[in-house]
Design a protein around this nucleic acid. Structure first.
Length: 665
DNA sequence: ACGGGTTCGACC
DNA sequence: TGGTCGAAC
């Protein structure tokens, strides 16, 4: 599973920052009286007092552990304060922690490349910052080294007689040391600063590891907690790994680690050194074998990705034992809840980060009643993601049915009173393949926004009800009630009908009446909306008319600084759920304005630009394109090929060439 | 009948 | 590519 990377010729400076019992800190900040008291965060669950998912350090002294029940925690620590995870729509809602994590990221990303590794973990590549510091103001020329930096734990530092602090200071100041160690020292000073800023600005403490690669940094960040940092000089690596149990290493905590112990008798990372690369490859495959061989030597080429935002969003819930869902309608009910949350988060991501997700995936777990093959896995299914709560809900339910049919097998497709021989113990929906949209097309957001609002009124939404998702994989997503009517389902799918749009804005109503055939692609509709959305005054309408032939998308491509991605900008979070600003969306009819934010809840202060766009090409009937005005066709075709665009982005301005070369299509 | 809910990466 | 599996927090 782990894979070896070509070692970037380096003496990089990598930091891993790990928030201390993060959920507890978030709750303690919210409710300061909890500070200093033994505290734990429990997940909603009245069963045995709920499950602990985070335990504060005061409570750990009493032996309280994660994965204890609330009741057990009370037993060993009667004074413990148990705080419940917020609940929304009948399920745990981690939004507050996600947002708190974003606060931290927006601070930590100031000094170098930053990768958000999880809700409470970050990797930083501080190589450049450390090199600059070493060249311009090395530790020995500093007035003083910060207290925080002097509290660093430096592995392998022999503490001879003098106080620990003095030894650490000496290590920081040692000018004859290995260049790479000096870089680490600079890194440690920078990290100490960053941690201090995090504390000042968020009230959260964190721990950190500073080393030459991600693996060692991660290992180190966990060695001295809470609120401390650990440095791993090159010279300390061999001894560190020699006696380190393999299970402590990231990626070796599971089956692979067990296999090393059981099959090879490898108990410590040092034990791995006996095995040749070939031997390891032979047993674990080329990639994993090489990866293991490197790990044994403290080598890890993995780069710090430049990414501040998550790659996907998901919402799920388990229904253990007796709570298992046994009817379609209960499944539908819960899917609706999950989809609602997902949709809300997608809309936030769109507003805050100008990104859209392209794939919807449904996962479920199930068991079979009175059946031998109850081990069978419920297959996950995915389809193109359509925005709007009702559409997501509808598609998720169809995906569920598709999975269920496969799960129970073709023999049971008989009739409707197939007694529930299945029970669902877990449901989750997720949205992935998230790409940015260009800043020149932000009125698209208005379109999505309207979609979402109107689609909550499901009954009069004829277009949506009519729509049958076309799946790229050829998966037949028949309506639930059509399970047994294959023929009818097929004829419906053969009709070349496209999605129409449930949009009740005045502009779109007008446009729709002109094309009542229903053969209006979502994209076309979105185009209409793009051109016309939100134009209220006559003045604006005139402006709209004028710009019609010269869409801002086109201008966008000629804008010199058009391409940069959200990941490089500030982190934004979706604060209060649903409290989306109906704010000024008209600006997209003007030139994109650098650094302009329409968000009411943005953080940080770097300017942010987002670009790269793409869409659900699977849903667009190619023949429709030919009927569009040429310049719009060109736009659409570009839209349909995000991968070409992505490449072009890398090559910089060649995107303009690509685009203009297609303008005549 | 359980640490739950997420997120990510690799493999095929 | 979609889907599965594993790992981590």
């Amino acid at each position: 599973m782990p894979v070896a990377r070509p070692e970037p010729s380096d003496s990089r400076v990598i930091a891993h920052i790990d928030m201390d019992c993060f959920y507890v800190q978030v709750e303690q900040r919210k409710q300061p009286t909890l500070r200093g008291h033994p505290t734990a965060v429990v997940q909603y669950n009245s069963w045995k007092g709920g499950g602990l998912i985070a335990v504060g350090y005061e409570a750990r002294k009493f032996g309280v552990k994660r994965s204890m029940r609330g009741d057990e925690a009370k037993k060993v620590c009667p004074d413990i304060q148990l705080v419940q995870v917020p609940v929304a729509r009948g399920k745990a809602d981690l939004g507050v922690y996600r947002n708190a994590g974003s606060e931290v990221v927006s601070i930590l990303s100031r000094k170098g490349r930053c990768e958000r590794a999880s809700i409470d973990e970050v990797y930083l590549d501080l190589t450049e910052a450390a090199e600059t510091m070493l060249a311009e103001s090395p530790p020995e020329r500093l007035d003083g080294i910060s207290e925080e930096a002097l509290k660093s734990h430096v592995l392998g530092l022999h503490l001879d007689g003098a106080s620990t602090r003095d030894c650490v200071r000496a290590w920081f100041l040692m000018s004859d040391a290995d260049h790479r160690d000096r870089l680490l020292a600079c890194g440690a000073i920078i990290v100490a600063e960053l941690r201090h800023e995090v504390l000042k600005e968020t009230e959260f403490t964190c721990s950190a590891g500073i080393a030459h690669n991600k693996m060692l940094a991660k290992l180190a960040s966990g060695m001295n907690k809470p609120a401390q940092q650990t440095v791993v000089p090159l010279s300390s690596v061999e001894k560190l790994l020699e006696s380190l149990p393999v299970k402590k290493m990231k990626q070796l905590g599971g089956k692979l680690g067990t296999s090393l112990q059981v099959d090879l008798g490898v108990n410590t990372v040092g034990d791995l050194l006996q095995f040749s690369e070939e031997k390891l490859q032979e047993r674990y495959g080329i990639n994993t074998g090489t990866w293991l061989w490197n790990i044994a030597r403290g080598i890890c080429g993995e780069e710090v990705e430049d990414r501040l935002l998550p790659k996907s969003h998901g919402s799920g819930k388990t229904f253990p034992g007796p709570q298992a869902l046994k009817t379609i309608s209960s499944v539908q009910k819960w899917l609706n809840e999950l989809c609602e949350e997902l949709s809300e988060r997608l809309l936030c991501d769109l507003e805050e980060n100008k990104r859209i997700a392209r794939t919807l995936t449904l996962h479920a777990s199930a068991y079979k009643l009175n059946d031998s093959e109850s081990l069978k896995k419920f297959p996950s299914k995915s389809c193109p993601l359509r925005y709007g709560i009702a559409k997501i809900q509808e598609d998720a339910l169809k995906l569920f049915h598709a999975g269920l049919r496969e799960y129970i097998g073709i023999y049971h497709v008989r009739s409707k009173e197939c007694k529930h021989e299945w029970a669902i113990t877990g449901l989750s929906v997720s949205a992935s393949k998230i790409v940015g949209i260009p800043s020149g097309t932000h009125s698209i957001m208005k379109y999505f926004h309207n979609l979402n609002q109107t689609s909550t009124t499901t009954s009069n939404d004829i277009c949506t009800q009519d729509a049958a998702p076309l799946s790229p994989s050829g998966l037949h997503l028949a309506d639930p009630q059509m399970d047994t009517y294959e023929d009818e389902a097929r004829t419906r799918h053969e009709t070349p009908s496209l999605y129409t749009v449930a949009d009740e804005t005045e502009v779109c109503k007008g446009l729709k009446s002109g094309s009542e055939s229903g053969l209006v692609s979502e994209l076309t509709q979105s185009k209409m909306d793009f051109l016309g959305a939100g134009l209220k005054s006559e003045k604006q309408k005139k402006k709209f008319e004028k710009e019609k032939g010269n869409p801002s998308i086109l201008r966008f491509f000629h804008s010199p600084d058009a391409f940069s991605f959200p990941e490089h900008g500030r982190v934004k979070t979706c604060q209060e759920s649903g409290a989306s600003s109906s704010g000024d969306l008209l600006q997209e009819n003007k030139q994109p304005i650098a650094g302009t934010s329409i968000s009411t809840c943005s953080l940080g202060r770097n300017d942010i630009r987002n670009d790269a766009w793409s869409y659900k090409s699977d849903e667009i009937d190619p023949t429709v394109l030919n009927e569009l005005p040429p310049e719009i066709q060109a736009e659409v075709r570009a839209w349909l090929h995000p991968e070409k665009r992505a490449k072009s982005v890398k090559r910089g301005s060649s995107i303009v060439h690509y685009f203009s070369s297609r303008a005549d299509l």
